[in-house]
Amino acid sequence: MNAIPIVTAVDLRRRFGEGEAAVDALDGVSLELPQGAFTAVMGPSGSGKSTLMHILAGLDQPTSGSVVVDGVELANLDDKKLTQLRRDKIGFIFQSFNLLPVLTAEENIVLPLRIAGAKVDREWLETLIETVGLGARRTHHPSELSGGQQQRVAVARALISKPAVVFADEPTGNLDSQSSAEVLGLLRRSVDELGQTVVMVTHDAHAAAVADRILVLADGQIVHDGDAGSADDVLDLMRTVA
């Protein structure tokens, strides 16, 4: 694997609430995500996975620690700059598909570019639509698509601006196994064929097995960092760490 880090986090801490009721969602997390890596983040519920993703993506600020995405230190950015960074360097895939119901599949895909006022690279769009297998459905509205199809649109939307890194928070959480496999395959191919950097939170051992590397969080700390093996290996791993 290539060794240039796209995302670097140092000693991230995130505390919610104050005093007695304070919760340390992240309690000293440091990590480096090299370019072209597919990383899975696992861990029990409440272990801080979503919090980590939000902070890495500039949606939330850490209580302390620093995050650098594609050479940009997030701590010093104001809302405007952060918005710009999210627009240009980050793709985000949500658990619930979060498409705009008023736009067609294709319009949803190019939405980030239109928001940025950037030109749509037609060739890239065609490649994406073909890759996600939505050729026949490009003019459909989200309400006319299945959950898996909607999530594939969301994946394409995350990839359209060729971001430095794509964060996916339980992208298969709402999908059946067939649709999950499609979406995971898609993310895998984006890494293999397009050199995309992807970070994905998942509870599913099969999903995690698709990744190159697995981070396991527990109580806001990284308790395991290693290569992903087969699904069974991942299951074993989860049993030991959690």
Partner: peptide, 16 residues
């Protein structure tokens, strides 16, 4: 609300 949150997450500015 949700849609607006998503729009902001994918890089829509407050002005937009």
């Amino acid at each position: 609300t949700r849609e607006l949150g998503m729009l902001r997450a994918i890089g829509t500015s407050r002005a937009q």
